[in-house]
Amino acid sequence: MSKTTFDMLCQRLSTFLSYDDTTFRRAIPLQMCVGVALWWLATGVGYRTLAHLFGISSASVCLIVNDFCQAMRDELLREYIQLPQLDELQNIIRGFKTCWGFPQCTGAIDGSHIPVIAPSEDHTDYFNRKGWHSVILQAVVDHRFCFTNINVGWPGSVHDSRVLRNSDIYDKAERGLLFPNLTDEIQGIQVPIMLLGDPAYPLRPWIMKGYPDTGNLTDDQRYFNQRLSRARMTVECAFGRLKGRWRCLAKRLDVDIALVPTVIAACCTLHNVCEKHNETYGEDLPAAGPPEATGEDGDPVGAVDTQPLRVREALTQHFATQR
């Protein structure tokens, strides 16, 4: 992180991280507080190790980390993580079409498991299918690897489709409030603005996924799946960069389970801060923790929507003409 970005964080968070002197000791300076919090989020080292490194107490490290993450969520999250509107929406649609060759796309959606220490209560709820405890981060990512929406806190045993159906994204989309009604005619079909998802999600007018591979796919259908998968790599790359920068997320988060969503939200906000301020990213950093669980088909039985099926077929024919 550059000094310019560091100074911006100090200025924006000064109200939340300015402590008063006491009779016994001077308050820890603002710049040190921000440095302590960033160091812990970027490394995940123990509080005692960090306390020795900065010459403060372990209790002070714990307090600073908690206050910093809370301040990031309260002060900067809504500014740096928000669904695109108007010109920004058009920029993202053009970006996906230019960079990834997928029209009418305004983001890719997926879930990532963040390892956590098994909580003392209801720990089985957090035990995911890969055999470790986690909390789910659902995120929508644009073509520049920035988060435009996050949903954090569901236990690791919950399926991705259930997380989606209980999120604000799903509620707004089903009520027609997620995106403006802007369509583009492709192969004679009006194609709406949409998100791209994996097989774990339902096929809806506002979320597109590939054809289920039952062994009978045509060449055109396989090519469509390849094009969609290539565009969806934005969200996979974003998760990799998130965990590469803020490595506390790539190991078990050693904080109270009630604080886990706040820490994850702070890291997602910091990710966008770094991306939007053009901070460099070291490709040699570890990009992920334990392997991700693969999703299952999220379409409810007997509830197939014919419109997205027609849209998917139109896009399939459109891509076939470009081969």
Rank of each mutant, 00 (worst) to 15 (best):
M1E: 01
M1I: 10
S2V: 02
L9A: 09
F16R: 15
F24C: 05
F24L: 15
R26E: 06
I28W: 01
C33I: 04
V34I: 14
V36Y: 03
V36F: 04
A37Q: 03
W39D: 03
V45M: 12
F54R: 05
G55Y: 12
G55R: 09
G55H: 10
A59F: 11
S60T: 08
S60L: 05
L63P: 00
I64N: 00
C69S: 00
M72R: 04
R73G: 01
L77R: 00
Y80M: 03
Q82K: 09
L86G: 05
L86Q: 09
E88A: 02
C99M: 09
G101F: 07
S112V: 09
S112N: 14
D122A: 14
D125M: 14
F127Y: 15
F127Q: 07
R129F: 14
Q138H: 10
V141C: 08
H143S: 11
H143Y: 13
R144T: 13
T148G: 02
N151R: 04
G153H: 07
W154M: 14
V158L: 10
D160Y: 07
R162N: 13
Y170L: 00
D171I: 04
G176C: 08
L177A: 11
F179G: 00
F179M: 09
I186L: 08
I189W: 02
I193D: 05
L195H: 08
L196G: 06
Y201I: 06
L203M: 13
R204A: 10
G210S: 07
Y211Q: 08
G215K: 09
L217V: 10
D219S: 14
D219Y: 07
R222D: 05
F224E: 01
N225E: 10
Q226D: 06
R230P: 05
G240M: 08
R245H: 05
K251D: 10
I257N: 05
A258W: 03
L259Q: 03
T262V: 13
L270C: 02
H271E: 02
V273K: 04
H277T: 15
E283P: 02
D284F: 03
P286T: 10
A288H: 06
G289H: 06
P290T: 06
G295W: 10
G295V: 06
G295H: 11
G302K: 08
V304D: 06
L309E: 13
E313K: 14
T321I: 07
Q322Y: 00
R323N: 12
